[in-house]
Design a protein around this nucleic acid. Structure first.
Lengths: 198, 198, 198, 198
DNA sequence: CTGTAACCGAGACGGTACGTCGCGTCTTACT
DNA sequence: AGTAAGACGCGACGTACCGTCTCGGTTACAG
């Protein structure tokens, strides 16, 4: 359990202290000055850490933000099971919308997705490491509804997910329009209507 | 009529020659090296133009790309009128998808939208100068369908548009999944189904 | 005598108005901001004149300063004839010292001499157009003393001049020490002593 | 003893390698292209050094030249002691003349003195850091002569120095005339004559 | 009494160098 | 072995002037 011991970094492992300081500094800088204001030099200075320490553990500033972000998404966006498709979807989409528009990790997500438009490698990592898992979580209510017989077994899950969450991301990333509860509820209703539910 | 005359720039106007060279160089660099590869110095060098000439007319590289992009979007994405809502939407969404995923100006759009995640001012300009016009064009088929009685006069156009195009932008910007004709057709079908058309 | 008429410049001659404005602006800028603060753009802006007008009449900013300076030196530094070598030299050297250290054209002279250290062409022009004439004037008291028999006909005028004025220029250009009347008087006395006068 | 070790620069000191390369490059450029041809970018390129490295250690190109120059002046211009005033002065003034007109550091001196005419701060530094020391060295033969009784104890050293070296600097900086051995010897003779030596 | 040529202001243009910022690599001394 | 510190080569930033150019205007003489 040596790795649990607090230390400043030596032959027995890295400094947890430095790691936390870097992640926090990056998050703070993103919040305060935006993505362009996040620089390795800035993180190092604010975290009281040497640049080399950052380069040793993270390939780029994007990776620092990714790590800061990873820990948050899953816990925020795991849908509950209320036993009813409409209710499950309504709650989940509303929380997704809130996560994307209001939360700090949502801001990190928007910045990273923005950067991914310039950087295919980052895009791939975002998909593989994060979005794919999120989509699996997003799909849970639908899978359960299929099991319950609320939805047809023929349902194309990917397609359904795109229809359900696409408009939310579109508002967040493109139009900048707010995403209120009525909007997400409407999305659910339209989806259920077009799939013959009630 | 001196302003129509080609010239190299003087008190009575700028050099159209230089302007075109800059826009082309910026587009080329974006295509060849990506957004980070677009630098003012690079544009100047490739266009055979002085840096100061760029700074004189454009505040930043983003503005150069915006101008290069502005001229293209409208002509690509004005929906036709086939007299039938389903047909109109199918054609239009397919062309939107193709524009976003295949065309050069589509690549510029993705880059600018990415950058807009880091820059609220750019985001606002993108919306005001481009997206709002595009949404007006996108709405045309729906307006005509309302006039024809195919759709209810109660229809919330904004909502409808978000449902229709949101999933396309989502795939383009977030998941990176291809957006084939079947996807856009499905979108149209689901939309019409949920609005009780046929 | 159309060239005496005030006008704004046309086929029949240049604008005297513009010429004066340029010379004044250059002098003012030198006084206010030093040599580096004298720029063609700055002169043009302050004189309310087009850059091209400056380039039409002066090859460089140095030439503008030279012209501003030329008019002044001769009138300040033509030695009087008091009929007595010691008196002539004392007065003349004192006036030379004052010209170099106190007057506006003296400041221009120092700046141009400074620049001449970087620019052999300027150095040559300074010598040919200005210093040679000044040395002729400086030599007048000595010539007259030779005629009067106060000094030997063998006197090497150039050498004598160097000994007399050299230390003054040295203080002005190198040590920055003040050049008071006692200093110039001492110079004259030492010179006369070493030439056996009284 | 780490500070004695050659290295490429780190927290414990700068790169001696880079320092030397910069000083040499500056000297070379001055010799080849004159003062205006000495640019920070040019020095950096020729020295194979980053501009920032120059700015880190020298405030301006003038400071680079000053440092390059500092090391040379003292060794060239320390007068010997031959035990005889006339001989001491003759040798020393001849060497001074040669230093100013022929040597590389002499060229740097002329350039810096030229620049000092535009820049009072530089003028002050030149005087405080260099000329004052040089004048102390220049005065050595006179001091020794006073001790020996060759010169009166009343001698005003500053005045004497100005008379002795002033004409040399005058020729170098103003008239551009050569400064041959006969000229410096004449200077010494005139000086001694006017002070009643032999 | 009208056309036109030389001069004027304005300022856009291709350049060069400026001084600054951040990158990613490196070396060192310390723990 | 990991860390704070920070110098290094590098590339791009946005700015200031350079010297050249074209433009539309304004005279004052020549035809």
């Amino acid at each position: 359990m040596g790795s649990n011991t607090a230390h400043r970094g030596n032959r027995h492992g890295r400094s947890e202290e430095a790691r936390q300081a870097v992640l926090e500094a990056a998050d703070d800088l993103l919040a305060e000055r935006g993505f362009a204001g996040v620089t390795i030099e800035g993180i190092a200075a604010r975290a009281g850490v040497a640049k080399q320490t950052i380069y040793r553990w993270w390939p780029s500033k994007v990776d620092v933000l990714l790590e800061a972000f990873t820990e948050d998404m899953a816990e925020h966006l795991t849908p509950e099971n209320l036993g009813d498709l409409r209710a499950d979807l309504r709650v989940h989409l509303a929380r997704l919308a809130e996560f994307l528009t209001e939360s700090d990790p949502g801001a990190v997500f928007r910045a990273l997705t923005g950067q991914a438009q310039h950087d295919p490698q980052l895009a791939a990592r975002l998909r593989d490491d994060h979005l794919s898992h999120q989509r699996t979580r997003d799909a849970l209510p639908l899978r359960r509804a299929v099991e319950r017989g609320e939805l047809s077994a023929d349902l194309d899950l990917d397609l359904a997910l795109d229809h359900l969450v696409g408009p939310i991301y579109y508002r967040v990333l493109v139009t900048g329009t707010p995403v209120p509860r009525t909007f997400t509820d409407d999305l659910v209703d339209a989806f259920l209507r077009s799939h013959g539910v009630r």
